[in-house]
Amino acid sequence: MAGPDMDMVEIVINGKNISVKAGRPLLETCLSNGIYIPNLCHVEGMTSPPASCRLCFIEVEGIPAPVPSCVTTVEPGMVVSTDTAAVRKLQRTALKLLLSVHDIDCRNCPVNRKCPLQQIARFLKIGLKSAPFETRLKKDLLDDRHPFFNYYPNRCVLCGRCVYLCHRKNGYPKISFAGRGFGAFIRIDLPLPDDAVSCHECRECATSCPVAALRLK
C-alpha cells in the first residue's frame, strides 16, 4: 500500500494546517509552501546542511529554544511558528554578525538590489549596519590567481555554498575553507587539477555565490 501519498503528514505552520511530505527539511517545506524563512547557506537537496548562517530559525512546539529549520525535518503533528519574537531576535543578531565581516559597499557591488543580505535585512526590518557589532574586515581585498574567477574576501560571508557545490559536482572540493575565526577565507587550489569537469565549464561556485564574493572574470 506504500505510495507517494503515504508520506504526507499534517503539520501546523503559523496556525495553518498544511499537508506536507514527512522527513523533508522544514526550511524547504516552508519555502515551497510560500512561507518565507531567511536563509543563506542552504542548497536544495543537501543531505547534511551545515546550518552555519544561523538565519533560518523557527520555533517548534515542544522544543524549548528556536531551532534552525534546515536541519529540522518534518514529523507528523508538528506545530511550527516562523515569526515569533525569539526567532526574529536571533535572525537579526545573525544577520548583523554576517554584516560585521562584510564590506557593505552596495553601491559598487555587482549584486546590488539582488543581494540576499539586502533582502533579508529588509525582511527583518533592519538597516545594513552591523551595530552594535564592530566591523572586522580582512586586509586582502582580492585573490585573482584563478584563471576563471576572482575572489573578494571582504564580500564573502563564508556561507560555504561554493565549497559544497564544487564538492558535489567534482566528488571532491577544489576550493575549501582555510584559516579560522575572523581570518577564515575560501582558499582556491592552484594549479588547477586536470579533471573531467573543468572549472571553465562548471562555474557553479561563482554562479551560486549569493554575495558576489566569487565573480567570473
Binding site: Y172, P173, S176, A178, R180, D189
Partner: peptide
Amino acid sequence: DIPISEVYGVATF
C-alpha cells in the same frame, strides 16, 4: 588520498 584543499583547510586552522 584526500584533496589538497582539505589538507590546507586543516593545516591553516
